[in-house]
Design a protein around this nucleic acid. Structure first.
Lengths: 232, 232
DNA sequence: AAGTATTGTGAACCTATGTTCATAACCTGA
DNA sequence: TCAGGTTATGAACATAGGTTCACAATACTT
């Protein structure tokens, strides 16, 4: 009980730091973000960071670890759902984008991890592989069930994840394009690429509202043009 | 004539340095690559680098600038070609992958440029925008011509470029999967996502040999599994 | 072959930055 | 209120790495 009180404060502060660090990492980049900036963003002294983490590496590690845990949890949930592969993949894509773009504390799952020590790096890579293989199996299942066109599930998974992860480079959450709109559009496009030619999209994705590849979302281009285009 | 001789040597050495730096940047990352390593890779002393470039930033800048010039040149060529939008886009995708994965000297076009000075960064961003807008217009033309399904060309372009650029994170040119195989597969998948439902792929992409989404390339997954999976 | 400009180098410099340390402030429990 | 541990901090430390400098080697011109 008494330790619980202390521990709660401790863990809350830890999470605050991760949030702040994740935010900075995403905007400035890992190498470009200093401990002093992280400390400032988390409202404590630089030295105090070391009461919560062993160092800068570990902060990045937990950012990525958290994000990967959430991604994997969602993936498992989607795979257990009683829907077809198309819907499962759509939900995975949507959650992935929300996780990467909205939940700041874990947003750094994609920065290059070259600067992290090997033993930590390996744990992350194992989780990444686990996630990627899940996506891959999901696609493979769709191919087996006939929903998707026969193709290479591994390459498709990497193409999809690549498209999703790179949104972090240009998406501006303050901009006029919402994450949800983006997710709808990307999911539709990326899934469509997998689907059988003869299969009508209506059956695969029945009755979606508003913006999709069925109804040209003329507004999006204009919205996109307004965002500062910081990167590709 | 006499200056030409000197200048040729000078420019050649410059290119050598860019090649070496690009190679290091791609494998280790920009922040993780030191001037001493670049010098070692280019077979000259660290101090001598400064006879060819003002600093590390400028080396990265020219790497990216070179790559973007080639990408833009190819894009313009593709747009002038007398083929349909599908073929144009396919050739752009294929060239982009070759440029990013095979031509080492320009491979760094995708590393985050946060560390570059603003005036250089702006020049790069302008070129990036120019390239991206070209891809966007190419897709839009395909939509207008009826080859592609109505959708948001800007978002599709970013999804495609994101998928292409992220290959640099996991593709191993020493591995068993060739760039050409990868390009075939990615192009087919990414273009297929744009195409009309009723349209048969055979008409859009007639008589392709070997690996495509038509014939499941069972070998690729196995090949991919063997590569060390360094990143997503 | 001498003079001159260009190219090349080892070593030193210096700033940025991750990290540590001595010490103070604070909270908890009795 | 006092004692224990915990949390917090400013300043100092250490090192990595981009850059510079004095100077040597080389190449080109006349």
């Amino acid at each position: 009980m008494r330790t619980s009180r202390l521990q709660r404060r401790y863990l809350a502060r830890r999470l605050e730091i991760l949030r702040a660090a994740g935010r900075e990492f995403r905007t400035r980049g890992f190498a470009e973000t200093g401990m002093r900036e992280i400390a400032a963003a988390a409202d404590l002294s630089p030295a105090n960071l070391y009461n919560y983490f062993r160092g800068k590496d570990e902060i990045l590690f937990f950012c990525q670890d958290n994000a990967l845990d959430r991604l994997i949890a969602n993936l498992d949930k989607a795979r257990r759902a009683k829907t077809n592969s198309t819907e499962k993949l759509r939900s995975v894509i949507t959650f992935h984008l929300h996780c990467v773009l909205d939940e700041v504390e874990g947003s750094a799952a994609h920065l290059l991890t070259n600067s992290i020590p090997h033993h930590l790096q390996n744990r992350l890579l194992a989780k990444r592989d686990r996630y990627e293989h899940g996506v891959r199996r999901l696609i493979a299942a769709g191919i087996r069930s006939g929903e998707f066109l026969p193709s290479d599930a591994a390459l498709a998974a990497r193409a999809i994840l690549g498209a999703l992860n790179s949104t972090i480079l240009w998406f501006n959450s303050q901009g006029p394009l919402t994450t949800e709109e983006l997710a709808e559009n990307f999911a539709t496009y990326l899934i469509h690429g997998l689907q059988e030619q003869g299969r009508s999209r209506a059956s695969a994705r029945p009755a979606r509202s508003g913006r999709s590849l069925d109804r040209p979302a003329v507004g999006l281009s204009r919205k996109l043009a307004k965002t500062g285009d910081p990167q590709w």
